[in-house]
Structure formats: structure tokens, C-alpha cells
Design a protein around this nucleic acid. Sequence first.
DNA 1: CAGAATCCTCTACGATACTG
DNA 2: CAGTATCGTAGAGGATTCTG
Lengths: 123, 123
Amino acid sequence: MVTTPNESSDIVYSVDCPTRDVMDQISNKWVTLIMIALADEPKRFRRLMRQVQGISQKMLTQTLRGLERDGLVNRAVLPTSPIQVEYSLTTLGRSLYVPLVELRTWSEKNIEAITAARADFGR
Amino acid sequence: MVTTPNESSDIVYSVDCPTRDVMDQISNKWVTLIMIALADEPKRFRRLMRQVQGISQKMLTQTLRGLERDGLVNRAVLPTSPIQVEYSLTTLGRSLYVPLVELRTWSEKNIEAITAARADFGR
DNA sequence: CAGAATCCTCTACGATACTG
DNA sequence: CAGTATCGTAGAGGATTCTG
């Protein structure tokens, strides 16, 4: 985490911090879902699209490209006709899967507390 | 995680899954930064704004409201003049901090691999 | 100091149509 | 099947101004 000092000696999370750039990428609505879906086993485009409900073809393509670009996902074109494309997690991707799934576990575990807090809020 | 079966017996991440709703909230560009900033110690609005560089007053207010609403952050109005408002993590918030910081740790640890992958991509 | 309100811009994203 | 290309729109979010 790249930081710069400020008057009160707080750590400042710089705008141009590369870590923040990475965090922005993976703090994405679809990234977590796709990564988790791919963790089970390699999957083809259509199957992913069915599994990650509500994602558009455009967003799935776009998000997968980003993940491929960052070395998190592997894209393999199968020499069939018509073409099939299989996506899988890379080693790096599998290492990211660990904290991602912990985040999901936290969500599942605390969904009730959050729902309760929301109900309480504004009364 | 609320799921529905599909033809190929894949787990489907439903659109209306409450867990997904929570995941969407915390998969937010600012949430992680704010949560981590508050983990050190309770902080006031101005100080948070300085620390989380690049956030606008509007977004900081908005994000803090969301976190407060979800029971992750506590908002305390100090009886000073002019008013001061101190934000701190709730117990629930501190429990979320754990996986969040792991995500940041992962980012810091793997920023180099990602940068390398990006450089490689498209060649 | 900590915000609420307003306006305005820009881009993320969906919908649709087309291709190797 | 797995995309690319184009267009159109809603909403996220910045800048600015005002207040208890």
C-alpha cells in the first residue's frame, strides 16, 4: 500500500496507489461471483452465464477479459466447431479465491445481523 | 447463499440472494478503505476525508450512512460547538475488517504478479 | 465541522444486431 | 458458441453552494 504522510501523521491511502488499483478491480460486483463459480471447475462461457444469474453477455466478456489480463483466469479456446472457450482459474486466481470465499462466508454468517440492523435503522 | 438449481445441476447465484446484496455493498470501492481507516481508531469526518484520498464529501457521507445502516459503523455526535462527529467500527464491523484486511494483504503481496501479467497481456 | 441540496457530467451497463 | 460493434439510457458520482 503506497501511502503519503499528512499533517496528523495518519496513513493516507493515496489515489495513485497500485494496490488501490488492484483493490478496485476485485471490489467488483461480478468478480467475486465469477471467481467462485470458476473455483469448482473450469467452465465454458454459456455455463458461466447461466450460473452467474443476471450478468449480461457484455459484462461477462468484459469481466473475464479483465481477469485474464490480470493473470487470474485462463482462457482456452477448444478446437471444436463451433468454437468452445473454457475458462479456469490460474494459480494466482486460486490464491485470490481464498480471501474472496472468506468474504462470502462472512456475508452468509452475518446476513441476519445486517438485516436486523437495517430494520432498526431509522427508528 | 440462496441458490436455485439449473439444468446442469450447477449452483446458480440467484439475483435476489440476500447474501449477494450484502456482497454488493461491501464490494465497494470506498467501503474497504473506510473500514480499514476506522480500524486503527475512531475518527472524525474531516480526518477520514483526508485519509481516504480522493473521496468526495458526498461519497464519504453516503458510504458512511450505508455502513451505519448495516450496523458496521457507529456514528457519535459530540456535543461540541461546532458539532463534531466521530465514527467507529461496531463489533460487527470489526469482524468484517478481518476478511477485508486479508484481501488487502493479498493485493499487496500479489501486486507485482498482476503488474507482470498486465505487461504480458496482448503480446 | 459535518453535512444537505442542487445541478450537471460521464460512463457503466443493458439491449440489440451482426460475425467467424 | 462465443464473441464484437453500436447505440441509448439510468444512475453514480463530482463540483459547488448553503446551513445548523
